[in-house]
């Protein structure tokens, strides 16, 4: 295998995983922008998405139905979480709210463990497992699905924020809460929407990677951390930054594992984070 085709293989792997990181990072960004909270339960949304979809699929539901239903259910969990645990706390400090998200993450993980047990489960691939070759690298159909769905989610989000009233209202309350309230936007309702939206995105991410990487009750923590990492690298609070950070992290991590040392693969990711923070503390596309 030539070095050239190796590089292609690493980059393709990196792009697929990077897409997932980017989706999770987007989830962080949406909640952070509207509420200022870093939602440590973001990874759990990803886990729930995958687990619920697998459960539904094993009951014989068509894959598409199972996936859609799973996204809806996870969105409901996100809504419920905001209503029950975040919303009632008027005027609590941000750090208190962050601890609540940590509590929620532990709680959701525990519930998932009770419902689904401790073993990993797998969703069937969307269209078979027959690999095909591009530029000397091999790639699974599922990788294309991941990339395609990731990009469409991003496009839909862009359209949502640019062209719908709700999206514009969310952007407005992210930009300036007081001003948004003055023009009649219910900022607190926007917080609810942001939780629902990022739960949905998390669920999508969880569903599309399940066929490749499996789902289990504790898969959320590391994915959540990497997504958070990606959000910071790109610049916390910036959506294009989250996408860029996600893909960058995925590709560099994969190249690092390939050419440097796979023992320190996770360390590579966090070293990138540290380097970015020291050189450009606000992230690559962060607002000054």
């Amino acid at each position: 295998m030539t070095t050239y085709s190796q590089v292609v293989q690493y980059v393709i792997t990196g792009i697929t995983i990077g897409g997932i990181y980017a989706l999770i990072a987007l989830g962080f960004t949406i909640i952070y922008n509207t509420t200022g909270i870093i939602n440590f339960a973001q990874g759990e949304f990803v886990m729930l998405g995958g687990m619920i979809a697998v459960s539904l699929a094993t009951t014989g539901l068509p894959l598409l139905c199972a996936a859609l239903l799973s996204v809806l259910l996870v969105t409901a969990v996100g809504l419920l979480f905001e209503r029950l645990a975040i919303h009632p706390l008027k005027g609590a400090s941000i750090i208190t709210l962050i601890i609540i998200t940590i509590g929620a993450s532990i709680f959701l993980k525990g519930v998932a463990m009770l419902i689904w047990g401790k073993d990993a489960v797998r969703l069937p691939s969307f269209s078979g497992d027959k690999p095909f070759h591009i530029l000397g690298a091999t790639i699974l159909p599922q990788h294309l699905w991941i990339l395609g769905i990731t990009l469409s989610v991003m496009l839909l989000l862009h359209l949502f924020f640019e062209y719908t009233i709700l999206g514009k209202a969310m952007r407005a309350s992210a930009a300036n809460r007081l001003a948004a309230t003055l023009v009649g936007i219910n900022v607190r309702k926007m917080a609810m929407c942001s939780f629902a939206l990022s739960a949905a995105i998390g669920a999508v991410a969880g569903i599309i990677i399940s066929p490749v990487t499996f789902s289990s009750y504790d898969v959320g923590t590391m994915l959540g951390l990497k997504g958070f990492c990606a959000a910071i690298i790109g610049g916390l609070g910036s959506s294009p930054g989250a996408i860029l950070g996600g893909f960058l992290l995925g590709i560099l991590e994969s190249l690092g594992a390939g050419f440097l040392s796979s023992s320190y693969k996770d360390a590579t990711a966090f070293c990138i984070l540290l380097t970015v923070l020291f050189l450009r503390p606000r992230g690559i596309l962060g607002r000054p």
């Binding site: 295998m1 190796q6 293989q9 690493y10 792997t13 697929t16 995983i17 997932i20 990677i209 490749v212 990487t213 504790d218 898969v219 923590t221 590391m222 994915l223 994969s254 190249l255 594992a257 390939g258 040392s261 796979s262 023992s263 693969k265 996770d266």
Partner: peptide, 20 residues
């Protein structure tokens, strides 16, 4: 010698190296 994390989603990078 290659290594992967307990929750790593993908090992193609490591295996590509072995393939070489």
């Amino acid at each position: 010698h290659e290594e992967f994390g307990q929750k790593d989603p993908d090992m193609t990078a490591q295996l590509t190296r072995i393939k070489g």
